[in-house]
């Protein structure tokens, strides 16, 4: 419902909200860094804008269950990771989340969804982890679901659940840039030696 206030209508009509949309640069923005390793690390730092965005971090916790919102508050209702990173017996992720974002009928916003919808495994937890360590972690097959660099590229560039971060539903800030740009950054990062920031 659109609420207008008789007193403030004029002001409302003039003041169109301006969102400070985080931008995400493509790999070409780093072309002038001569040293390839430095360039690679710089590209990863740019990727980090996505990797450490609340849209990603909320489901990459290191302890307990997921968080929600841009302020990364505890998930409400309270939920736990569960044996399969899919919640508890009797209340798993799909009790509420489905294969699509669903707008609320009476309140603002939406409940997010995607098929599948689940937590990243705990070894892929990133919350409060320094970006340099996330980088090391992301390359470590022991901690990245057995992926090689190509598989990591595929995950970041193609995976639908990763892609949800740019289509997160009503009431949620999308991750910066596009998944396509993240894919290009990841490709460039791999091609420059997949170096990690120090």
């Amino acid at each position: 419902m659109k609420h207008l206030s008789a007193i403030f209508t004029a002001a409302l009509l003039c003041a169109s909200p301006v969102f400070a949309q985080d931008s995400l640069s493509g790999p070409e923005a780093f072309a002038d860094i001569a040293d390839e390793t430095e360039r690679s690390a710089a590209i990863f730092e740019e990727m980090g804008k996505v990797l450490t965005h609340p849209r990603c971090l909320n489901c990459h916790p290191v302890t307990g269950g997921p968080t929600q919102g841009d302020d990364m508050r505890p998930h409400s209702p309270p939920v736990v990771r569960g044996d399969a990173d899919f919640g508890a017996a009797g209340m798993n992720c799909s009790t509420c989340h489905s294969g699509q974002n669903v707008e609320f009928t009476s309140d603002q916003g939406s409940i997010p969804g995607h098929d599948p919808w689940m937590l990243a495994p705990v070894e892929m937890g990133w919350v409060d982890v320094p970006l340099a360590d996330i980088c090391t972690q992301i390359k470590d097959p022991e901690r990245n679901g057995g992926r090689d660099l190509e598989a990591i590229h595929e995950h970041l560039a193609e995976d639908g659940l990763v892609g949800w971060a740019w289509d997160p539903g009503k009431g949620r800030t999308p991750a910066p840039g596009t998944q396509e740009t993240l894919g290009q950054l990841t490709r460039a990062w791999i091609d420059t030696g997949a170096a990690c920031p120090s």
Binding site: M1, L4, A6, I7, F8
Partner: peptide, 18 residues
């Protein structure tokens, strides 16, 4: 009920806050 809620969503109301 759903149609009623959706209908309400589609309203534009100007309120007098005096």
């Amino acid at each position: 009920t759903y149609a009623a809620m959706k209908g309400r969503d589609a309203l534009t109301v100007e309120w007098d806050d005096v």
